[in-house]
Amino acid sequence: MDDTALRRILQQFGLSDKEIDTYLTLLEHGEAKASTVADAAGVSKRYVYSISEKLEDRGFVSVNDHVVPTTIRANPPEEVIASLTDDIETMRPALEERYSHAAPETERFEVIKSRVTVLKRIRSLIEDAEEEVTLSIPKDNLDEVADSLRAAVDRGVLVLLVVADPDGTADLPLDGVASVVRAWTEPMPTMLTTDQRVGLVAPTEMIIRSNSGARAIAFTEPRLGPVIVGSFLGNYWPMAEEVYVAEPVTLPETYTNFRQTVFQATLHLRADTPLRARIRGRRTRGGETEDELVGRVVDVRQGLTEPANNAFPVENTLVVETDDGLVTVGGGGAFIEDFEAESVTLDVLDEAIDEE
């Protein structure tokens, strides 16, 4: 290693140019008086004393001030290396902790060129879903993702599925494949979102033909996910025909996905199940602190399953009868409702609940 490379490395350890000059001079002399080092390094004797204290603190040199005149000795290189190594290892836990918190996210946008890769990615994203999946896919490709969809439903994920099928879906095994399945007789892009933050969009021809030359876009973007879901529910979902609806789950259940809450409440109310809701969240007007709401669910506004009764495609609302009167409840970001829910526990209402 030449002097230039050595100086560059010493700079990386925090030594200034004059500190490096002083240290290299001491290495060449082994041990020397401050005046000798000052003359050789081209600095003042006072500066040598000042720098020597700093170099001693770093483990580079030892200052012998028990003799007159004071001498400065360069520590053996193996001791210096050992000291620097210890310093680096000491940093490791703190660096690793900070790195885990600030690790780069998955690339936000990715172009996918292969049909096989698109279908593999769809399965992978569905398998990672925790709360919600929205998916549109051609009928002929449903079998390729059906097992992943059924597993998602089994673990409590809300799955809203549109099958693009010009010929109808009578011959498709739909049981358990989704929470709600709709069929549309027009071609449509393959659109997937999971948990409203990751997903992909692929042109129809890319999925139905292996060498179409079309490209899909995968995304990891919390701000884009709700836009794709809004397009799915607003533009495609109302146009498709409902062909399957799952049975309601056994209660009690606690949900942080509000669409799943409204969907299950809808199914139970249609089955004449008296429902109680315990809701954590905050008032949408002047509610700065967390609050809790308990009452009977008397109505819903939704468009997830027919017949729809919401005023706009993404409206999902619980109407809850409380001791203070009727309260409307929406999900995250609610503004037209009275209450914004963070989590909801649905339970079968004991008629003696009025005593609570």
Rank of each mutant, 00 (worst) to 15 (best):
G213F: 05
Q264P: 04
E19W: 00
V133M: 02
R155I: 15
I137S: 08
A41H: 03
T254V: 07
R8Q: 11
A183L: 09
T256Y: 08
K45T: 14
S210W: 07
P76D: 06
L26C: 07
I137K: 05
V61N: 03
V243Q: 05
M91D: 04
D147R: 10
W237T: 11
S136A: 12
P76Q: 02
K54R: 13
L15Y: 00
I217E: 06
E351L: 14
K18S: 11
G287E: 02
E96Q: 13
R280N: 12
V118D: 00
A146L: 11
R276H: 06
Y99M: 12
K18W: 01
L142N: 13
E221S: 14
G325S: 09
L200D: 06
E110Y: 07
T134A: 11
F312S: 15
A102T: 15
L6M: 12
G325P: 07
A311L: 15
T204G: 06
V162A: 05
D21Y: 04
R108D: 10
V262Q: 09
L125S: 10
L55M: 01
L160W: 03
P104N: 00
S148L: 10
P307E: 09
V116P: 02
T185K: 15
P274V: 00
A178Q: 04
L224Q: 02
R182Y: 09
V116G: 12
P138Y: 09
A202M: 03
G59H: 01
L318I: 09
P203H: 03
A178M: 04
S50N: 12
R8P: 01
T185A: 14
F13M: 08
V198A: 15
N316P: 08
D350S: 12
R223L: 08
M191C: 09
T328W: 08
V329L: 11
Y49L: 02
E290C: 00
L161I: 06
V327W: 07
R285I: 11
F258V: 09
L15S: 05
P77S: 11
E131R: 15
K45W: 02
T36K: 04
D323S: 15
P77H: 05
E186I: 12
L160M: 13
R46E: 14
D21P: 06
L119G: 03
A164L: 04
K33D: 07
N64L: 04
V262R: 11
L318S: 10
E28T: 15
T71K: 01
A178P: 04
N141M: 06
K54L: 00
H66Y: 12
T317N: 09
E53K: 07
R276I: 07
Y49M: 00
E105K: 14
E356F: 05
A41L: 08
T250K: 11
L275Y: 06
R278Y: 07
G330K: 10
L200H: 03
V153F: 07
E144L: 14
K113Y: 14
